[in-house]
């Protein structure tokens, strides 16, 4: 079976700054890939290229057999790819339940009641059913991020992208979000996670990737990459964050 995400020699620059210089990566269905690297290494940019929040200058990305070229294709890929942001980006003017049902009704054209039932089921799954009728800003950071995960899941995506999902959280709230992600991984969701949470990577990831200066430096299983890396760059980076 073809990989669900195929990234072929992708280049991207912001003005004179080269964010990505020829990244190629294939991710299979059901795989969990963790991307680490110093800030400015292009890891978030790569993630954002997968659902075309960022346009790239060269190369090709094919998601679930659909190349990201036309506007229609981009929209249909976005429907199949859920994204979780560092800053949650919940819609503050909508209650939690409406955050979860909006795209279901507008994009998926589901009936309101079906969307609500689906939303409540997902809120149960992420452990905060009692907050359905609150507004996002009344929730803690960890709860907000779990709502954001539920909101992405409400679209029944085939792939979930996580852009530093725990970086904006207080330390005691990180685990509740990671637990939700771990469960998701166990259920067989294809996940690409930009994160420095080693514990999560060791427990859930099939592969860990180190990026630096817009390129993939090293990829291996988390166990090997974290404890026995071959590249000097990887050793240096790990020595700084551990």
């Amino acid at each position: 079976m073809a990989p669900i995400i195929q990234i072929q020699d992708v280049h991207k620059h912001f003005g004179h700054v080269k964010a990505l210089r020829g990244v190629s990566l294939e991710i299979d269905k059901g795989e969990v890939v963790v991307i680490i690297g110093p800030s400015g290494s292009g890891k978030s940019t790569l993630l954002r290229c997968i659902n075309r929040l960022e346009e790239f200058d060269q190369g090709q990305i094919i998601v679930d057999g659909i190349p990201l070229d036309s506007a229609e294709n981009i929209n249909s890929v976005r429907t199949e790819v859920g994204m979780v942001f560092q800053q949650f980006n919940l819609f503050p003017h909508l209650r939690v339940i409406d955050n979860l049902t909006l795209a279901q009704t507008v994009v998926r054209k589901r009936k309101k009641q079906d969307a609500i039932n689906n939303a409540l089921m997902l809120l149960e799954k992420v452990g905060i059913p009692e907050k359905a009728y609150n507004f996002p800003l009344q929730l803690s950071g960890g709860q907000q991020q779990r709502v954001a995960i539920a909101r992405a899941l409400a679209m029944n995506p085939k792939i979930m992208l996580f852009d530093e999902p725990t970086s904006a959280l207080d330390p005691e709230m990180i685990q509740e979000v990671l637990d939700v992600m771990l469960n998701l991984a166990k259920e067989g969701m294809t996940m690409v996670v930009v994160s420095h949470e080693m514990g999560f990577a060791r427990a859930a990831a099939n592969r860990a990737i180190l990026m630096d200066e817009g390129m993939i430096v090293e990829e291996a299983t988390p166990a090997i990459l974290f404890s026995n890396p071959t590249r000097e760059r990887t050793k240096l980076f790990l020595s700084k964050i551990l």
Binding site: L53, N75, R78, T79, G82, N89, F91, V107, R151, A152
Partner: peptide, 18 residues
Amino acid sequence: ISRGQMEAARSLGMTFVQ
């Protein structure tokens, strides 16, 4: 309105107008 709001909406598959 922060750019993240538009990005979140677009990443859920909504069109620009939606």
